[in-house]
Nucleic acid binder design. Structure first.
Lengths: 199, 199
DNA sequence: GCAAAAGTGTTACATCTACACCCATGA
DNA sequence: TCATGGGTGTAGATGTAACACTTTTGC
């Protein structure tokens, strides 16, 4: 599991790694601004994300030396995201493994931790896991995801029972046949949209 | 359980009931603005609240004809709150039973419903209930609160078992002796602060 | 044939749910 | 004495947690 960071071009914290961010223009919604910032600075498109949720709004008066009023933060999830490095003006977007993050500018690490926490609790009562998965996947892949978010290993048999009991996934007749071991059955999610309980 | 509403003085929706709101001045945090708005328009003080949490940030470009950028919303909880009607400039703040709300301006009803939902889920994994209760209370009073938020009746014995198992409350040697029936034991919360998992 | 990951059931234990009666008081 | 809300336990069902071996494949 990886997190997209950019290398800041401007002060403060120029040259340091940070979450991508930018300004909201007059008459623009925060999600419109998000879309623009994402594509301009990070080479990603909102449409590539399978899930997007508002995280929190921070008062930046105290946090940011430039003294702006509010930072509305979002977190998004996608599978097999590729940044388009060709674009001009990008701030070197790069994915970093979530468990070995480099030092971040501002208090962005706290924000990341908060998002992680939120994600973890959402896993238990939504099908948000879907947003991380490709169209078809094996149960081991799914379990690995859950373990990454939970931060500890899970029992294979119990995990499979629980997942199957939720009716979120359906088995297919396709098989993953890599490596010198028994093939694994591919599964797909039963509902093709991620629930979003927010506005 | 009651919700504080004001009667709007200004357009749009002048004369209609709404959640109290206002502007954030340059260099001000949203909570500072909240404090000012509360006391100026609603005759309440942030300090009277036992719990405060950011609810959501709405893009008001579309929602509000005045075309402002973002509304950062908060919800707060207190016990035995009294508005100071004496203050000048108040917009007729009044408490309304949460289950019989009048029509509201803007889409404030949706916001209220969202807050309710959030509150309900928080009850299960925090001691947020505390914020609604006076210092000492009977188990029946507490159960009534939980039933109001849940929207359905709860089993008395199961409720008591669950509550006691959480170690959130302690019994006292004091008794509530009103009415012609057996007195009820007063309880207090074990921890005197409400957990706030947010920033 | 062996290494590697896939797949599969059962039992003990904890938790949750449904349910009915006696108690202490004031009028 | 009676009406009112306070207070208590148990049994069945459900859910959770712990645990080990066989299967299929590529090399």
């Amino acid at each position: 599991m990886e997190l997209l960071l950019i290398k800041r071009k401007n002060e403060p914290f120029a040259g340091e790694l940070a979450l991508p961010g930018g300004y909201v223009a007059e008459g623009q919604t925060t999600t419109e601004a998000l879309d623009k910032v994402l594509s301009r600075k990070a080479g990603l498109n909102l449409g590539q994300l399978k899930y997007l949720e508002q995280l929190y709004s921070f008062d930046t008066v105290a946090r940011d030396p430039r003294g702006h009023a509010v930072s509305v933060t979002y977190y998004g999830i996608g599978n097999d995201l590729k940044v388009s490095y060709q674009k001009a003006g990008l701030e070197n977007p790069e994915f970093f493994p979530i468990n070995e993050l480099p030092p971040l500018a501002f208090d962005h690490l706290k924000i990341v931790e908060y998002a992680r926490q939120r994600l973890q609790s959402k896993l238990s009562y939504t099908n948000i896991a879907m947003a991380f998965m490709p169209k078809r996947f094996t149960l081991s892949q799914l379990q690995t995801l859950y373990e990454q978010i939970a931060g500890h290993p899970l029992d294979k048999r119990n995990f499979r029972k629980q997942i199957q009991a939720q009716n979120l996934i359906k088995e297919t007749d396709e098989w993953y046949k890599e490596g010198r071991h028994r093939p694994a059955r591919y599964y797909v999610f039963a509902k093709q949209t991620v629930q979003n309980l927010d506005f």
